[in-house]
Structure formats: structure tokens, C-alpha cells
């Protein structure tokens, strides 16, 4: 898994609530049997019209907004368990998603792929949106070790929570299978004792 430590980037703002994984990657694109290439269809039906032409009013088609950080409204990633949503976000080039609330399964899927989901307060989320809409090239700085996210121009900073185990996985680039396999003997003992 890709390692994550620090990132400073511009952001793409998506101030919509309850963005479900069917929006992130519609089911008709889940026919692929590999993990690659889903970025082309990220937010497909918001990005393109029925003739596959880019919709000018969608933020990802507006060159004013770009970067490796996606900032979205609360309850991001609700709905289906499709990990393709995390793959699409990563494949498109996002390393961090910021929201005031994440759906459980999406959050786990993101972490398992080296995409960092950062939960901030409603107020801090508003501050980011305000800053970006006032100054689209504003930078956001993320420091995983320190568990901080900072709006560089205003120096507003937020300390976010992350499970210490998942944090070390991201920093070191290892995944759950590596960890569980190192305890295989305990699994076999558990099976025998049932």
C-alpha cells in the first residue's frame, strides 16, 4: 500500500451532503475485474451529460479548482460497500478526502487503500469552503503524524482523530493482511478451542 505522511495541496470543493458511492462510481462501471482505471468514471453522471460531454457547471470540470484534496459535505460515501469508490477517488488523483462525517464502510475502504479520510467539525468544514470559494488557489496542509489539517492562508488548524493502528499502517504503507497473518497461530488456536 502507498505510504502517506504529509501533503500540501489545493483542494476541490464539493459542498453537497450525503454523497453516496453510486454518485462516486455508478454501478454500471463496476464490471471491471482489476483495480485500475476507475478515475475516468469518478462522479461520472455529475461530470458528464448523457452524450458524454463534460458538464461545465460541475466543479471537477472547472480548472479553477484542482488538487489532491477533495472536500465534501457530511455523510460522504454512504450507500454501497463498493471499494471501487475509494479506487476511483485515488485513481483520479485524490490522496485525502475531508468531510464533517463519513459513512463507515467508505472510511474503512479509503484507509485500506492509502486514501486518508479526515473528519473535521462542521465549523472547520465551513472555514475550508469559505476560504476556497474566496480564494480558489488556497492551500491546505495535512500532517498525518501530527494529526493536523491547516488552512495555510489563515493558519486555521484542526486536530483530527485517527485510530493509532490505521495511522501506523498509512505511515508505513502496510495493510491488515500483513498484520493478521503475523497472528495466524492464534487464529488456529481460536478455531481449535471453539
Amino acid at each position: 500500500m502507498k505510504k502517506f505522511e504529509k501533503l500540501s495541496s489545493r483542494v476541490v470543493p464539493l459542498p453537497i451532503e450525503n454523497i453516496d458511492t453510486d454518485q462516486i462510481i455508478p454501478a454500471r462501471f463496476l464490471k471491471a475485474t482489476t483495480r485500475e482505471g476507475f478515475g475516468n468514471n469518478l462522479f461520472r453522471d455529475w461530470r458528464y451529460d448523457s452524450n458524454d460531454q463534460p458538464k461545465a457547471d460541475f466543479v471537477m470540470n472547472n480548472p479553477t479548482y484542482q488538487g489532491k484534496i477533495l472536500v465534501a459535505g457530511k455523510n460522504f460515501g454512504c450507500g454501497s460497500s463498493r471499494e471501487h469508490a475509494a479506487w476511483a477517488i485515488q485513481d483520479f488523483g485524490f490522496d485525502v478526502v475531508v468531510s464533517s462525517f463519513f459513512a463507515d464502510i467508505f472510511k474503512g475502504n479509503a484507509l485500506n487503500n492509502g486514501v486518508l479520510p479526515i473528519t473535521v467539525s462542521e465549523e472547520f468544514l465551513e472555514k475550508i469552503f469559505d476560504q476556497i470559494f474566496a480564494k480558489p488557489d488556497a492551500e491546505i496542509e495535512v500532517d498525518l503524524e501530527a494529526q493536523t489539517i491547516r488552512i495555510v492562508a489563515t493558519d486555521d488548524q484542526y486536530e483530527f482523530e485517527i485510530n493509532p493502528y490505521k495511522k501506523s499502517c498509512l505511515i508505513n504503507g502496510y495493510d491488515d493482511i500483513d498484520f493478521i497473518l503475523s497472528h495466524k497461530a492464534e487464529i488456529e488456536i481460536f478455531e481449535q478451542q471453539r
Binding site: S81, E83, H84, G108, N109, N112, D176, I177, I180, L181
Partner: peptide, 20 residues
């Protein structure tokens, strides 16, 4: 409960999951 594909792989490999 529902899981992502990385977790499907974990269960294949270990019959276990790391879960809060």
C-alpha cells in the same frame, strides 16, 4: 455486515477481520 474488497481478501487469507 458489508465489507470492501480489501476486506474480502483479508477474510479469504485469514478468516478474520480487524474491526472496531
Amino acid at each position: 455486515f458489508g465489507i470492501g474488497t480489501s476486506q474480502v481478501e483479508q477474510v479469504f487469507a485469514t478468516q478474520c477481520l480487524l474491526q472496531q
